[in-house]
Design a protein around this nucleic acid. Structure first.
Lengths: 122, 122
DNA sequence: TTAACATATGAACATATATTCAAGTGAATG
DNA sequence: CATTCACTTGAATATATGTTCATATGTTAA
């Protein structure tokens, strides 16, 4: 077995259903798309961010309000808002010293509700 | 300021919109429900699991097939299938030596598609 | 019952990430 | 214009988590 073969051989087991594997391989989305998708759900996958999103679905709020509502430090909230902002799930507007955050996209609520539906039906 | 007050005071900033905070607080779901929701999305928030789910949406598959399709070790796939199993996103059936995995819940596809929709509309 | 195969699992390791702490902006206000 | 307030940000730390490696389990076939 050549060195190249060794390098190529990443799996330690055999293909059992070759046709299935081929067919599924041909319809799999681009890796980058699945990566982005995982990154999106990763943002939803944290209790703090979930709470922030849930609160913002209900009402636009400033950072201080969120920190008080969630009983967290303002810094921690701000860090998480940054993550939500980068994922384009929330937007903000500055009014004087105060920064108001709100949900950026209707999909947030849909995804939120769909998750709840899944949980409650089990 | 008493010791109790110090303990209670976890936030380092003031409530600016007290009415809003009170109202939102009154409609926030139970913490445990938001926790479960975050845990659910956390499962979607990993590229490997995303690939596995995406593949299983297309077809029932055994562990070896998945490992080959995704170019991963059998062990790694098996570990992730365990996570998906615990989240009730996939189910399995044993046929002889081979274990076939499939999607356990129609919601998986809905959530998957909703995520894609969100990404593609930006 | 021994060997081979498909899969599962525990421990170790490396990496990712959430929170805290300290310090830094930017805007209003006296 | 110095101070206060709302917020941001970088670094450090602690924790969570994904992969690997070695080994164990369960099934079939020789």
């Amino acid at each position: 077995m050549s060195e190249k073969d060794v390098i190529m051989e990443r799996c330690d087991c055999n293909v059992i259903h070759e046709e299935t594997v081929k067919r599924v391989a041909s319809v799999m989305p681009e890796e980058t798309e699945l990566y982005d998708l995982a990154e999106l759900f990763k943002v939803f996958g944290d209790l703090t961010r979930m709470k922030i999103l849930c609160a913002l679905i209900e009402s636009e709020m400033c950072v201080c309000d969120l920190a008080n509502l969630l009983n967290m430090t303002q810094s921690s909230v701000s860090h998480q808002l940054r993550v939500l902002k980068q994922a384009r799930l929330v937007r903000y507007k500055r009014v004087g010293k105060i920064v108001y955050y709100s949900i950026d996209d209707e999909h947030v609520k849909y995804i939120f509700d769909l998750g709840l539906t899944h949980l409650r039906e089990k």
